[in-house]
């Protein structure tokens, strides 16, 4: 019984850590701009696909990973410069549609540049399962969980200990006021896209050995990441992590104890319930109505 439960837990942790990492990127851009970037999943895809194709071409893994992160960041910067920056003063919905357009564009570009097949990366530290009280976990899952932990720590340090990070936070609270005290709002927005693209690529690289990657793999990860970020409370990095883990665990436990056909539905029902009682998510800022 316990071994069974533990295995569900491991399964949930594996998926949950992936969702969490995907959700973090949403949180960062939301913080800087109040915008949900629906192209976030595409950053994950670009990271995974770049690394996988480079490794397949004979590049050493570490170099392929490094290049994948750079490529994704450049795409993030280009997206902000070419599509978001010109529409900075528009409605949030308008910018959201722009990001949906961007995700369609990037997916289309990926199938032209690469192909429509699935690609994989070798696991970073072997494929021997780790056994624990009758349950098993793949080492790569630990890489995913570790990356999430590292990312959240790095983000905490960045937003609370560096001047630029603080400036980004300030901008999210009040753009005009931030501008008035001399914060370059433009630069903050650019940095937030670069940062979330980087995080997306990290996610793409560490999850590819588990889930594989293809030009379409960003869709599901983006959707789950968005769910994680909203459940946790938009703009909260910790919230995105907790939200992702909850979604992953609910799915695993639901398939284990209830119905695997309805596990996704059950996860969404849980999210709906949480939102009914906590309309700003688990760790979200309480919304203040401007009258």
């Amino acid at each position: 019984m316990f071994a069974e439960f533990l295995q569900y837990l491991f399964s949930g942790l594996t998926s949950g850590a992936i969702y969490a990492l995907a959700g973090l990127g949403f949180a960062i851009i939301y913080n800087a701009s109040n915008v949900i970037n629906f192209a976030q999943g595409e950053f994950i895809m670009i990271g995974g696909m770049t690394a996988a194709s480079l490794v397949a071409a004979g590049t050493p893994l570490w170099l392929a990973v490094a290049l994948a992160l750079v490529v994704a960041m450049l795409v993030g910067i280009a997206l902000e410069r070419l599509a978001i920056e010109p529409a900075r003063d528009s409605d949030v919905v308008t910018i959201v549609i722009i990001t949906i357009g961007a995700s369609i564009f990037l997916r289309g570009a990926a199938q032209v540049i690469w192909d429509k097949e699935f690609h994989s990366l070798p696991a970073f530290s072997g494929e021997t399962p780790i056994a624990l009280s009758g349950a098993t976990l793949m080492p790569q899952s630990l890489w995913v969980i570790g990356s999430s932990a590292l990312a959240i720590a790095a983000l905490w340090w960045f937003f609370n200990r560096t001047l630029f990070g603080k400036a980004m936070l300030a901008t999210s609270h009040n753009r005009l006021a931030a501008q008035l005290v001399g914060i370059g709002v433009k630069r903050v927005l650019l940095a937030s896209f670069a940062l979330s693209a980087l995080l997306g690529a990290v996610a793409g690289v560490v999850v590819t050995p588990i889930t594989f990657t293809s030009y379409e793999s960003g869709i599901m990860l983006g959707l789950k990441g968005f769910s994680a970020a909203v459940l946790g409370g938009l703009g909260s990095g910790l919230g995105a992590i907790v939200g992702g883990l909850i979604v992953g665990l609910v799915e695993a436990l639901a398939s284990g104890y209830l119905s695997s056909a309805y596990k996704d539905a059950i996860a969404f029902i849980i999210i709906l319930f949480v939102l009914f009682f906590m309309p700003s998510g688990l760790f979200g800022r309480r919304g203040t109505d401007r009258v």
Binding site: Q7, F10, S11, T14, S15, I210, T211, S255, S260
Partner: peptide, 12 residues
């Protein structure tokens, strides 16, 4: 189709 992990189902 896109589930990252199916050990829960397989454990069952």
């Amino acid at each position: 189709a896109k589930d990252p992990d199916v050990t829960a189902q397989l454990t069952k």
